[in-house]
Write a protein that binds this DNA or RNA. Structure first.
Lengths: 230, 230
DNA sequence: CGCCCTTCGATTGTCTAACAAGTACACATG
DNA sequence: CATGTGTACTTGTTAGACAATCGAAGGGCG
């Protein structure tokens, strides 16, 4: 099978293109997206452009008030912390339940191998397998709503990352090692320790991202201690 | 402060009305919602009605395919299990973190008192304070994204409940007692036990709801044992 | 008699054109 | 300096229209 072909509507097509342009950084934070601009650049009617914009607003990629032009969301340090804490909540519970069943997702194992493979390459290439590692863990529980919620969070993370030029700070080897340890802890049924390590893992990524965004450490939550479950 | 007044658009107003009609059960599962019907009944133009419908589709209350008329979602037993498991994931992690800080949300305490107050009344009146109890716990962690995700799940739960005529099975006293025990466990810092109790608590509610919907127990997950973290 | 194909009504997707209403900002006025 | 006014830009909503598509009813054929 050559893959399901889908006849997407014009609205969806435009929304998808705008989405990719937002993720690629072509559309920067706070950039205005007027309905007429979108309509003329894609050569469609304004209601069509409007529908596309509102789709992205519903997804959380754009922001808009009544009678105000839509803008690409500007995620500050507080938002980054909010996002990463939400990730931690979802994912640590997933780790516990995976550990209780001692089920190590094959996809996560493969993803971590892929991280090791690109170790010497460009540091941005590690983002994709890293995300794949985490989503594999989430998807392993087989809950459609949890997967959907996590995917929404991942989208916001990607949005943050596209706002950052210097991601050279990430230590690929450390990431890969911690992932490996997480998988081991799952296999050994040690859910609590896996959850704790995940807090550290995500906490570091979070502060690194905040720092790269030019934000300073928040009033609290500077140390990862307040994130550790116990 | 008399509360922020908001000038909602027509689209939002119609969406809100449709939403309440779906929750109240006036619009049953699988009921069709034609764009022209909505437009004529609210005396608005079709694009406006279309936007309202698509808003509810994005919220997950309506279902629709391309070129097919929108219908109220029909949530089967699998969906109920999916929803409740997602609730359990979010909420049990919240309980752990609340317990680690020994923070007992005042709103949850009040909500449980309200449950006790209506103990002798109509069994449906217990649904509102029950939901308030759980959302209070979630909101106590102060994470906007988690709160938003949980609210979406609560919406789906309410949708399920509106599909059920006989909810007389719920044991108000038991619910109230388990809530009380959850709060105590939080206060004592025993997160693991709180999470375990929550699994039992939600597992029972889930199976009760499935039974009331006329569905039989699933192939697995009949016993709550596979939901307990350890 | 049953199955396939065509046709038709109903519904949605999209467009054009237009007007009303709101926001934001500059400008003038007290 | 605060306040009001005005204007340009943008969005909210409407009307009507046409094409594309889906579902079902009906007719032809084996």
């Amino acid at each position: 099978m050559p893959g399901r072909i889908a006849a997407v509507s014009i609205v969806e097509a435009i929304a998808a293109d705008l989405r990719s342009r937002v993720f690629s950084g072509e559309l920067g934070s706070g950039e205005a997206l007027t309905e007429t601009d979108v309509a003329s650049s894609y050569e469609v009617a304004r209601p069509t452009a409007k529908a596309s914009i509102e789709k992205l607003v519903a997804e959380g990629l754009l922001d808009r008030g009544t009678h105000k032009t839509a803008r690409v969301v500007d995620l500050g340090p507080e938002s980054v912390r909010d996002i990463y804490l939400a990730r931690a909540y979802l994912e640590s519970e997933v780790l516990r339940r995976l550990a209780s069943g001692r089920t190590v997702p094959a996809g996560a194992v493969q993803a971590n191998k892929d991280i090791a493979a690109v170790k010497s390459g460009a540091p941005l290439d590690v983002v994709e397998p890293d995300m794949r590692f985490h989503t594999s863990l989430i998807d392993a529980v087989g809950n459609t709503r949890i997967s959907k919620m996590y995917r929404s969070l991942v989208g916001e993370v990607r949005l943050c990352m596209s706002r950052v030029q210097s991601l050279h700070l990430l230590d690929t080897a450390l990431i890969q090692a911690e992932h490996q340890r997480l998988l081991e802890l799952i296999e050994e049924g040690r859910g609590d320790e896996a959850a704790g390590l995940l807090d550290v893992h995500l906490g570091r990524a979070r502060e690194r991202l905040v720092a790269a965004m030019g934000g300073e450490a928040g009033p609290e939550a500077q140390s990862p201690s307040d994130l550790v479950a116990e």
